[in-house]
Design a protein around this nucleic acid. Structure first.
Length: 422
RNA sequence: GUGGGUGUAGUUCAACGGUAGAGCACCGGAUUGUGGUUCCGGGCGUUGUGGGUUCGAAUCCCAUCAUCCACCCCA
């Protein structure tokens, strides 16, 4: 026997039994995007490695340890995209999308790749949806982006999620704050983990996030980021909260939210589902005002978020939320005898091209076997065609749940069914 | 990259170191043109893979791979 293969570690097949759920979630996302007036952008699955190294940053693990890197035949360096914002901004600059003025509102869907240890809600190839608004620093936009996330989760029927927001300030505030953190943590470093000891120089804010109990204990009384915001950042954050309140979107301020990617500043937020386990972030996002400039564009502010489909489906599964209708045919045809089988070829085609989802199994001969097949398809109707019906140029329509059946003239069948299925 | 748990039929799970089983699912049947419920019948599956211990291994040991959970990271 030939060797059997399996999917690469941390990846998975989306099988027919589940694929309609994915379609449903994508559809809902696209609908919300349309409501909020975001247009789709599709970028390649790989980019020059630099696109991620320069932006996502040197202190982030996803660039340092988790990127799938490769060289093409000419020795150029590429990476499978580990996240969606950097490619979108690359495209924004490359195609001068900002030239028309105003806000550029984009959404994307697709696979991302990170070489992580697989775990619940975490895969090496995972599917993200995300939105970006490039062109405005107005706190109104921050609130709009957050509202999009809230609207999307709500539209899916989810209830057990929480919104946490924070402001991590701009480079101006960070200078003072980082210094305050260094001053606070340095005397305690001998009691803290090796990661913290290393990060204090690269990105001191990350020490706030550490989950090692001893570190957590020390971080508990660390200086509060919000007290170090400058005037601009402080009012910006206050206004974001005000707009959220005006929309009746519930949130909690959590000064410990620190985004893992280097390009973030000002507003940062997460939608969390605490029933999910350790990987509990449904959506994560924030502002990235310097990023466009980093990519060689003119200084343009931006803000966005990204979320993972896998966690969304997990959440929906545990909350018992509906995934829309399971796909199935409307009618199943049962044909008895060779003549009936021949007529069924045309009948099937007529039904299908008239918008009726129809199925037939040519491998089953007996009426009984075909009825069983019909039952398994869970169709609402079965059409029965045998000698008698052929002679009368009619067909029997049976409603499976009630078991009731009636005879219908062949020429009226299509309109009759279209009417019934409306 | 680190730690712990688990790998047995399509699936969910049993089997004190002594012949590998059950539910669900699946297939067939219960007379001639009617499905679901019921009844009857149908299971050799490289016990993830490779070694080792033993008279004898699904069971104990080692390795390896996969998976799950946690650390970490983050969506």
């Amino acid at each position: 026997m030939a060797e059997k293969y399996s999917v690469p570690r941390g990846t998975f097949d989306i099988l027919p039994a589940d694929s309609y759920k994915w379609q449903y979630v994508k559809k809902v996302f696209s609908e919300v995007a349309a409501q909020f007036n975001f247009q789709e952008i599709v970028t390649p699955i790989f980019e020059q490695t630099d696109v991620f190294e320069r932006s996502v940053g040197g202190s982030s693990d996803i660039v340092q340890k988790e990127m799938y890197r490769f060289q093409d035949k000419k020795g150029r360096n590429f990476a499978l995209r580990p996240e969606g914002t950097a490619p979108v901004v690359r495209s924004f600059v490359e195609n001068n999308l900002g030239m028309t003025g105003g806000n550029t509102k984009l959404f994307y869907l697709g696979p991302m790749f990170r070489y992580d240890r697989p775990q619940k809600g975490r895969y090496r190839q995972f599917y993200q949806y995300g939105i970006e608004n490039i062109g405005s620093d107005n706190p109104f936009i921050d609130a709009e982006i957050i509202a999009f996330g809230y609207a999307f989760l709500s539209k899916l029927g989810l209830k057990n999620f929480e919104l946490e927001i924070n402001s991590i300030g701009c480079s101006n505030c960070s200078k003072d704050y980082n210094q305050a953190l260094v001053e606070y943590f340095t005397p305690n470093l001998d009691k803290m983990c090796s990661d913290c000891n290393e990060r204090i120089n690269k990105n001191p804010k990350r020490l706030l996030d550490c989950k090692v109990p001893s570190c957590k204990e020390i971080a508990k009384d660390a200086p509060n980021m919000l007290e170090y915001l400058d005037e601009d950042c402080r009012t910006h954050f206050a206004q974001v909260q005000e707009y959220l309140n005006l929309m009746n979107i519930p949130f909690k301020v959590n000064p410990r939210i620190v985004r893992g990617l280097d390009y973030y500043n000002k507003t940062a937020f997460e939608f969390l589902d605490n029933n999910l386990g350790a990987q509990n972030a449904l959506i994560g996002g924030g502002r990235y005002n310097g990023l466009v400039e980093q990519f060689g564009g003119k200084d343009t502010p931006g803000i966005g978020f990204a979320g993972g489909f896998e966690r969304l489906l997990l959440s929906m599964e545990t909350e018992g939320v509906s995934f829309g209708e399971e796909p199935k045919p409307n009618v199943f045809i049962v044909a008895i005898g060779e003549k009936a089988k021949q007529l069924t070829a045309k009948l099937l085609f007529d039904l299908r091209t008239n918008g009726i989802k129809a199925e037939y199994n040519p491998d089953k001969e007996s009426l009984k076997a075909q009825m069983k097949a019909a039952d398994k398809e869970k169709t609402r109707f079965t059409l029965i065609l045998g000698e008698d019906e052929i002679a009368k140029n009619s067909i029997i329509l049976k409603e499976m749940i009630s078991g009731e059946q009636q005879e219908i003239p062949r020429e009226k069948l299509v309109t009759f069914l279209q009417d019934k299925l409306r």
